[in-house]
Write a protein that binds this DNA or RNA. Sequence first.
RNA 1: GGGAGGUUAGCUCAGUUGGUUUAGAGCGCUUGCUUCACACGCAAGAGGUCGAAGGUUCGAAUCCUUUACUUCCCA
Length: 912
Amino acid sequence: MSLATTYSPTDVEAKWYQRWQEQGFFKASANPKKTPYTVVIPPPNVTGVLHMGHMLNNTIQDVLVRRARMQGKEACWVPGTDHASIATEAKVVALLKEQGIEKRDLTREQFLTHAFEWKEKYGGIILDQLKQLGASCDWDRTRFTMEPDLTEAVLRVFVDLYKKGLIYRGVRMVNWDPESRTAISDEEVIAKDVQAKMYYLRYEIVAPGAENSEFRTQNLEPRAENSELGAVDELNQGSKLSALGSKFLTVATSRPETIMADVAVAVNPNDPRYAHLAGATVRIPLLGREIPVIFDEYVSTDFGTGALKVTPAHDLNDYELGVKHNLPVIDILADDGTLNEKAVLYVGQDRFAARKQIAKDLQEAGLLEKVEEYASIVQTSERTKAVIEPKLSLQWFLKMEHLARPALEVVENDTVRLHPPKFKNMYRAWMENVRDWCISRQLWWGQQIPAYYLPDGSFVVALTAEAALAEARVQSANPNLQLSDLRQDEDVLDTWFSSWLWPISVFDGFKDPDNADINYFYPTNDLVTGPDILFFWVARMIMAGLEYRREVPFKEVYLTGIVRDSLGRKMSKQLGNSPDPLDLIAQYGADGVRTGMLFSAPAGNDLLFDVKLVEQGRNFSNKLWNAFRLVKGWEVDAALPFANEKPVAWFNARLQAAIAELDDHFEKFRMSDALMTVYKLVWDDFCALYLEMVKPAYQHPIDAETLRHTTAYLETLLKLLHPFMPFITEELWHELAERAERDYVCVAPWPQATAPPDATRLLADMDRVLAVVAGIRTVRNQKNIGPNKPLALVAKTEDPALLARYEGIIRKLGGISELTFAEAGTAASVSFVLGGSEFFIPLEGHIDLAAERVRLEKELEYAQGFRESVQKKLGNEKFAQNAKPDVLERERQKLADAEARIAALEQAIKAL
RNA sequence: GGGAGGUUAGCUCAGUUGGUUUAGAGCGCUUGCUUCACACGCAAGAGGUCGAAGGUUCGAAUCCUUUACUUCCCA
């Protein structure tokens, strides 16, 4: 045989991917004669390269899409990328810096030119990588969130939502990322536990109406020189405190560097410790500025000292307190996280450097009472990991309430189903507590907000500058207003403000809301993505879909797990525990990698990736390859009669049952189980059993009828496997037979399960026959008898006809040379009992009578115990009354089986 | 701190409306095997008192209560 004993994927994969594309199999167009099946890809970042998460996600999508295509649906998988404003801008800025170009020296247009150049050069990498995985996307439909049409869609939506009063502009406390120097949305903030420090600061009390500044410093004792700053120290001495207590108010804070932005100290009005401070002011340590003591029940008496410094510019709660008490706002932080001139002290220092320095200075000034360890939480940027600053800033927001209500409704009533359903709870919690979405970003890479400011500071919102001008002329009642008088908002929109339109915008549903594609392909069917972007993206797509199409964007959402390493750790560059997907494909083949990923990917569970899984996938490819080699190598002798009626009928029954099971798994999005069903069908049923039953002896020909059935089965298996392993199945499809021009397994019809009328009996009979075979093989193993040594089998059974019908199979798989029926076995035999039947294998010289007796008696004892427990149950009156008839019947059957088995065992023991 | 999951064989997971000395799968493990498609293989086998305690029931991995551990979401 010329075919290699191991399958080599690399030779095969590129070839077939190219052929599929040449044939246009992945192209989809509105076709009223077919049912549409649509998937939009979660657009990867244009800066991205393929990682293991993409592999899993896109493998699942491809499996679904390929199956739908074979089912005769008009399968449309739309690929594309998103512009990832923060990540891409950072990347381009860094690249320019390497070339000696600073962003601030460029105009917006110049920068965007650079950025688009970069995108053209590198932006398609990840899509090409998907092709190596086998992704059957309609590449002609590739979209990019910042291309002109999609940009227009974003702007149209912005204008529309503004006109509907859902978008507003205002000063709000936002999450400021000092590293990317932009506001980000609540969803882009990740809370992290940290071990922080709580600083207890002394604010000098200025008595009501009196100027007693002589207390300022002289009553302070110098701190011990060796007192380590940062350690929890012992300064909290009662005597000293009480002495100082009357002159100082101690305030606990984790952010001492923000005292320069303090505008008050707040205490609870019910706190007796501070009642005397009514009308008092205190001096900010080091700075000396006087600020009032205010009273508010918001302050909790048991946190810190019960006194709270109020810094409205840098804390949301403080801001609200400030508004309530009419306090000023002092913002001491610059956009990059350094202190600005309003801070007066530490100007130009980074906030963390300033914190260290001020702690030191406070300590030296005797104004730091103590420092405590403090388990705290910091908010960090999902994208840059920088610590977020709450910052008051003028931003654009989208009101969520109106959009969230219907979007929650459709998930609650299962119009959109989440898989696994446990995510419904999470979704509900988010939807019910959703806050307005900050959609403006202080960046250039993205869609510039279509708001245009008039010279008088008012603004208009319009799709184009020209439209804005027309509106501005009306609004200002100034017909002489010129384009040059208008200034467009500098900010761009959040990338998710593009992505949430994706299922509509990729079909041009905004530009042309009634076009054939959108009407046909929308709503899409399945969405496959990670739960980490359930809110970012999935929820918002549902909102946009309902708002703009009055229809949900997809019906089923499959949420994958996270790919982790075998120790359960997230894959990261730092740990270096993430394999390069392309290396894996090169080493094990795309089919091997795809199946490897799916083997351990139950829905919603994290996938603990182990290269062994991919090895298993490769081994499976190889198994299939060798099954093909065997069949391909058979010579036909047309004169031979059909010799394998039983195996052929049985395998058909198995096959049909497996197809039904497979379809059921797909229905329930149990991808891992679906794969396992085919895996076992191929490996166990087809290779280990069926092929072994029908294969002719070495160098003997096969009859034509058997070959015809076997080839047909193999073809069906290739179809069932194709969604999982597209490459090897296509290769074998064409190796197996000469194919017509467009006859590819890629577009072959998906097999329909049609169980033969006698399936139940066929399967049950074969189970009994295979149990006999297993019994024989166990004897061989126990007695160390190789498979080539022929054995005789004597059966004592109430159903000899069954064994007679399947004698050929028993002979072949069991290595049995002679099957006879008798009423008793011979003493020099090894016996085994199945149900009520006894089987004897005469083995002169291999028999240890005593050991045989012990073994059989052990089995007997077990069977008797079993019988007893069943009898006990059947004897229980309450059981007889309450149990359903079928349960009762099953128990009676068990009893009968047990009795037959006991009788057979007793016989066998007697025969010894 | 609030909420939602999970805890079943060494590992990763199934287990549908409670039905049993027999709770399944894949991988791994053990033993034997150059059986002429495949050692990326073949055959056989071992391995679990279903986190713990209590309860309901004729009967509980499955229902209820308490508890421990763990993951995630929100604050």
